[in-house]
């Protein structure tokens, strides 16, 4: 597969390490959320057959974490964003 890195352009997916659903960005706050909320966050997956937003890490590249929107049936990639930007757009900061 080829991932069009927002900074570096097309790169072979072999340079990346896959993590999983991009919802892993939305980690609850451990001081307020309990076991059930963390359970939902860490374990439950939508696992769609179709468009999937997922985290890839450019380990053999610039070490950027990316959010890749990819179709799990065709493997077509329609969007690639820096995970940091996505995280900020979700209101994450420090």
């Amino acid at each position: 597969m080829i991932i069009h890195h927002p900074i570096l352009g097309p790169r072979d997916a072999q340079e990346f390490v896959y993590l999983g659903d991009a919802s892993l960005i939305e980690r609850p706050d451990g001081m307020t959320a309990g076991v059930e909320v963390f359970h939902e966050y860490l374990y439950q997956r939508t696992n769609p057959a179709g468009e999937h937003r997922e985290l890839w890490y450019h380990e053999q590249g610039d070490r950027s974490w990316l959010v890749v929107t990819r179709n799990t049936v065709t493997h077509e990639i329609t969007r690639v964003e820096l995970a940091r930007d996505v995280a900020r757009s979700k209101g994450r900061s420090k």
Binding site: G20, D21, Y43, Q44, R45, T46, N47, P48, A49, T72
Partner: peptide
């Protein structure tokens, strides 16, 4: 392999990926 797809018919999310 298709568990998530079929169980979505019952409104369930599963602790798994395909």
């Amino acid at each position: 392999g298709s568990s998530s797809k079929v169980m979505a018919h019952a409104g369930m999310r599963l602790p798994m990926e395909s």
